[in-house]
């Protein structure tokens, strides 16, 4: 038992200090291996032919690039929400204009009545609550887009481009546009 431990220790020491000596002394090929010609370790050097289109490597790599996250991960702030509303209201207003004007152009062919007299009559026939609601729905996008547009023009002049001012003017525009829209609806 003791002699085994001594052998183990000296072997360990040898292995740490002179690993090459260990290899030659302990892994020497057996006579059978030498006779069979298997004493030499060989490694197959093969190169697989690259049949892949090299330009596709970059295409595949690009698929692993990080993708910009969607809007829901951002904290709602007056800056970007207000900016989105500016575009949404603009598209809604211009879309209304485009649809109405095109429909007016096509109305003789379609038999619709979009001339001012019939629109006034239709509006006058509505109950008061519906009138106020419809007018608010039309006025609010307009007042917001108009006032925020003035804010944009100020930015184009290089004014009010600090974060506190942007927050302040953003909320000011929200308040003023709601107030003026309600005021316009009650005319």
């Amino acid at each position: 038992m003791f002699s085994q431990k001594v052998a183990q220790q000296s072997l360990r020491r040898l292995a740490v200090q002179q690993p090459l000596a260990m290899r030659s002394s302990m892994m020497g090929a057996s006579p059978v291996a030498v006779a069979l010609g298997k004493n030499i370790q060989t490694r197959q050097v093969t190169s697989t032919p690259n049949t892949e289109d090299p330009s596709q490597i970059l295409v595949k790599q690009r698929l692993n690039r990080p993708v910009a996250p969607h809007l829901t991960i951002y904290k709602p702030q007056i800056g970007w929400i207000g900016s989105s509303l500016h575009r949404i209201t603009g598209v809604a207003l211009s879309g209304t204009l485009y649809i109405w004007a095109t429909a007016y152009l096509a109305s003789p062919a379609l038999g619709w009545h979009l001339e001012s007299a019939s629109m006034v009559a239709a509006m006058g026939a509505l109950p008061l609550a519906a009138k106020v609601l419809l007018k608010t729905t039309l006025a609010l996008p307009f007042t917001y887009h108009a006032m925020n547009g003035i804010r944009h023009l100020m930015w184009d002049l290089g004014r009010g481009l600090t974060n506190p001012v942007i927050i302040k003017t953003g909320w000011t525009v929200v308040g003023l546009s709601i107030a003026s829209a309600v005021g316009l609806a009650l005319i």
């Binding site: 004007a101 001339e115 001012s116």
Partner: peptide
Amino acid sequence: GLYEFETNDVGVTEALRRIWTA
């Protein structure tokens, strides 16, 4: 369409005023 409305009807601003006060 807007040109037609301007020439054959009362015009955009006047129409909007009339609708708004209807």
